[in-house]
Simulated scan of single mutants.
Amino acid sequence: MTGDRSRRSARGNRWGLAVVGVVLLAAGLASLAAGLGLFGRGLADSALLGPPVREVLGQQWVPYVVVAAAVVAAFLALRWLMAQGFNDTVGRLVLERGDEGRVEMSESVARGALEEEVADYPGVRRVHARLTESTDAPHLRLALTLDADADVAGVWRRVRSEALANLRRALDLEQVPTVVRMSMTAPAKNPRRILA
């Protein structure tokens, strides 16, 4: 399910950032402690790349380990970036499921019908809808751009009592959790005057 995937992605982001933060914090505190002489005066007074470190870095296998670590880090970073780009919109909606199969509808059909209906309401300039989370129990995100003089409460009442009711009936669902975001368009700066 897409909602589970996005929640897992968000949880992975939090854990990944927490682990990186803890590692960097530990490295910083260890460096500070070494510089202040908490691990002994000899370590505090020695060069960062002293003879033992230079000897290890001069080994033949070190460049291969560095390249391997860089490839793993690049792979993990690329995977993380790809996970951020996942769209949580469902592709198909399951209307009925039985022993012989299931009946599906394309998300774009349900979304298109809803957008077309709401776009006809007075005062609505633009509509953008997305059905997300799950194919069996979708959630709706509806973004409306209204004219500056639109009746906001009236549009909201019609969306709730007509458009959402029609969507629930079409999908044969008791409820479709919905987030409605409304914004107003700015009035034109230089309205054209119509001369009679």
Rank of each mutant, 00 (worst) to 15 (best):
G3N: 01
E117Y: 07
L171E: 01
A27P: 03
L195C: 04
A18F: 10
L25I: 05
V22M: 15
S134I: 00
T178P: 02
G16L: 06
K189Y: 06
D45I: 05
R8T: 00
A73N: 04
W80Q: 01
R7V: 00
R41P: 07
R125P: 04
G12F: 03
L146G: 02
T135Y: 05
D45V: 04
L49T: 11
L173T: 08
M105K: 08
R54A: 09
A68W: 05
V20G: 08
R160W: 10
R157H: 10
V118R: 02
L48T: 11
A137R: 15
V22E: 11
F39D: 07
A143V: 14
A73M: 14
R126I: 03
E107Y: 09
A148C: 06
L24P: 07
A153F: 08
A150M: 05
D88Q: 09
L48I: 11
L131D: 01
D99K: 11
N166K: 13
V71L: 15
A34I: 09
R7A: 03
R169P: 04
A153P: 05
T135A: 13
V180M: 02
V109D: 12
A163F: 07
S183Q: 10
A150Q: 03
V56I: 15
L195K: 08
Y121K: 10
H139D: 04
R41Q: 14
T178Q: 01
A186Y: 02
N87H: 09
D45C: 02
V176W: 01
L49N: 12
E115L: 08
L49A: 13
V94W: 02
D149T: 10
A10F: 00
G3V: 00
L48K: 06
A47R: 13
A18L: 15
E55G: 12
V62T: 12
L95M: 04
R181L: 12
L36T: 11
G91E: 12
A68L: 13
A113H: 10
V53P: 04
E133I: 04
R193M: 11
P52W: 06
E96R: 15
R8Y: 01
N13K: 11
D172F: 06
R141S: 13
L38M: 10
H139E: 08
T89H: 03
S106M: 11
A77L: 13
L164V: 03
R160H: 14
D147A: 14
E107W: 08
W80R: 01
W80C: 00
P52S: 05
W156V: 11
G3I: 01
V180P: 02
V118W: 02
G16H: 03
Q175E: 14
F86P: 01
E117P: 04
R97F: 06
N87S: 15
D151P: 00
Q84A: 11
V103H: 07
N190M: 08
V103C: 04
A148V: 10
D136N: 13
A83T: 01
V155L: 09
G37M: 03
L36D: 07
E104T: 15
R97T: 09
R192Q: 06
G21R: 06
A10S: 10
R7Y: 00
T2F: 01
A143L: 09
R157M: 09
Y121C: 08
G28T: 12
A44N: 02
L164K: 02
T145R: 15
S183L: 10
A77Q: 03
